[in-house]
């Protein structure tokens, strides 16, 4: 394991706490009707998100999926415009046009989330193609779940990335359920082992609740990509604590209580706090990180609350680059 600076370790915990606090607040806001529609939270998956996003450089690209608030937060996006987007405000990161399913913050390399499972994988692949053609040293990473691992476009993309040696990381967030369907009941074999068929390394991170384990695995893939040695598939085992989406009540017990308890005992934020304490971080400092994250989320909600909804006059803006083309 690489020796990381204390600032980096602190930032990892802070970003995980931000994601937890942001999504817990978003969940409440959905239930109170303050956020229209629904959201898909990353609660429980923070280590996997932050380990991957912090392994990327500031200028590197990534594409997300439907469970994707954490990705831009993990990459350093400010919370205010993200929260305002969830509410549908004009100050949202997508001006209120995207919502929870379509957060994007190009300023941090976030090329957007997709509500269609697997659909954003080739977008990141294309960003990797850009980097290769323009020779600018950037890498790209596609986040996708165990559900998307069974979409054909993943394998079209892995093949193209392999044959062109693109600077690309395919990051499978295996939270073990596609909505209510256990991954093992619809997935033949091991996802990470599929990499072999494309001549690229396939890495499985069993300890996906350990942010450092994820960080190390993805850092190695990033280094490989940046060196011109091509793509890597990284499968990270993790678990979502909440329902597939907030407010969803399936009425079936597709996940048993023992399983959930076992994963809760490996909570990524608690685990990393223990690690940080063992590295000499004081309790006061660790409590301070928690307070900082909560205060940032409070400020993000205040920013959203104070922001206007978009005026009808901007409804057609950004359909095309020129206004004349909009009917």
């Amino acid at each position: 394991m690489a020796e990381l600076a204390r600032d980096t370790l602190r930032e990892m915990q802070l970003r995980m706490l931000r994601i937890r606090a942001f999504d817990e607040r978003a969940s409440k806001m959905v239930k109170r009707g303050h956020i229209p529609g629904t959201v898909h939270t990353s609660i429980g998956q923070e280590a996997q998100v932050v380990g991957a996003t912090m392994a990327l450089g500031t200028g590197d690209y990534m594409s997300g999926n439907h469970r994707s608030h954490g990705h831009p937060i993990g990459k350093g996006s400010p919370l205010g415009p993200l929260m305002a987007e969830l509410v549908g405000k004009a100050t949202g990161v997508c001006k209120g046009k995207g919502g929870s399913l379509h957060l994007a913050d190009f300023a941090v390399g976030s090329l957007g989330e997709s509500g269609i499972v697997g659909s954003s994988i080739p977008i990141a692949n294309g960003a990797a193609l850009s980097s290769k053609v323009l020779n600018n040293g950037k890498v790209a990473l596609a986040f996708f779940g165990d559900g998307a691992a069974n979409q054909g476009v993943l394998y079209e993309s892995m093949n193209m990335a392999g044959v062109w040696a693109l600077p690309m990381i395919f990051l499978c967030e295996n939270n073990q359920y596609a909505l209510s369907t256990p991954a093992h009941t619809v997935t033949s074999g091991i996802i990470s082992e599929r990499a072999a068929g494309f001549g690229m390394p396939g890495i499985k991170v069993e300890e996906g609740q350990d942010v450092l384990a994820v960080y190390d695995a993805v850092s190695a893939a990033v280094a490989r990509a940046r060196a011109g040695d091509g793509p890597t598939l990284v499968e990270v085992m993790t678990y979502r604590y909440n329902e597939h989406s907030e407010g969803l009540r399936l009425g079936t017990d597709y996940r048993n209580a023992d399983e959930r308890e076992a994963w809760l005992r490996k909570d990524p934020i608690v685990l990393f706090r223990q690690y940080l304490a063992s590295q000499g971080f004081s309790e006061e400092e660790l409590d301070g990180l928690q307070a900082t994250a909560l205060a940032e989320v409070d400020a993000a909600v205040a920013f959203s609350d104070a922001s206007p909804y978009p005026d009808l006059s901007v409804a057609f803006d950004d359909l095309y680059t020129d206004k004349e083309s909009a009917a």
Binding site: P122, I123, N125, G126, L129
Partner: peptide, 24 residues
Amino acid sequence: RIRNTPISEEGIVGAAAGAAMTGL
């Protein structure tokens, strides 16, 4: 700059979109 692709239309079109979003 002249690239043969595999027969993978979904992957090609998506990659072209991603490339267009990032400078090509």
